[in-house]
């Protein structure tokens, strides 16, 4: 074993962890109830599925507003700024290097939690897929108010189709995401980090300037 010495770093704050697990519960509940309403299987019963889906969906919409507020006031949005730098290296790592026992080309740091591939995926998720899903979900839920809101030009089948496509995209993300959390230096390392906040990384990994964007000095919190 020629691994570098590992050190524990505090990667995820309490709020981040809370938000992550809350959102994962929300997404899983919405997937289950949503696909039941869609008719893919029978579990809770149609009425309970609809009521749960509406309640959880609307709650998510409200909580997401807090998340947006948090991400901009803390400057954490920078973690999502997309970059192509080292992207190929990351792709190469997951498709080849990981089988060769190589180290991750862009290790985690508090100031740079996401590698370029993650940035792209999470940005698409947080800025595109989830908002689209929330918007179409909200419209779906408010179907009866469309005429009153001047939205009667909208088409329910189109809204439903977009919402459905989004659901498939999120489910696919979930599948890959659940797998990717096993790719830490141990199978449970990433999961542990998201529970306790602490992750083991190789000592001495330097954060590149480009990863930090314009934030010049490390945070003091």
């Amino acid at each position: 074993m020629e691994h570098a010495k590992m050190v524990n770093i505090y990667l995820y704050t309490r709020y981040e962890r809370f938000w992550h697990w809350l959102q994962s519960a929300i997404i899983i509940l919405l997937l289950i109830t949503g696909f039941e309403v869609h008719g893919s299987f029978r579990l809770l019963g149609f009425r309970t599925a609809v009521d749960t889906h509406s309640f959880v969906g609307l709650s998510w919409l409200i909580l997401f507003a807090f998340f947006i507020f948090w991400i901009f006031t803390t400057g954490e949005w920078r973690q999502y700024a997309p970059t192509t730098r080292k992207m190929l290296a990351v792709v190469r790592y997951y498709s080849y290097g990981i089988f060769r026992g190589e180290s991750h080309p862009v290790p985690k740091r508090k100031e740079a939690k996401h590698n370029p591939l993650q940035r792209l995926v999470y940005l698409s998720l947080a800025a595109l897929l989830l908002p689209i899903q929330m918007a179409t979900g909200f419209l779906y839920w408010s179907y009866n108010s469309w005429p009153a809101w001047g939205l009667d030009w909208l088409s329910l089948p189109v809204v439903a189709a977009i919402h459905m496509a989004g659901a498939f995209a999120i489910l696919s993300f979930l599948v890959v995401h659940l797998y990717m959390i096993t790719t830490g230096h141990t199978i449970s390392a990433h999961t542990r980090a998201m529970i306790t906040g602490w992750e083991e990384v190789e000592e001495g990994t330097r954060i590149e300037d480009w990863e930090q964007k314009e934030r010049k000095s490390p945070q003091t919190d």
């Binding site: 309403v37 869609h38 609809v50 439903a160 189709a161 459905m164 496509a165 498939f168 489910l171």
Partner: peptide, 18 residues
């Protein structure tokens, strides 16, 4: 009508992706 109607192509494609 939710639960009654679906788009077969979208469903097929969706499950293929998943």
């Amino acid at each position: 009508m939710p639960g009654r109607d679906n788009f077969r192509a979208l469903d097929t494609l969706g499950w293929i992706v998943v």
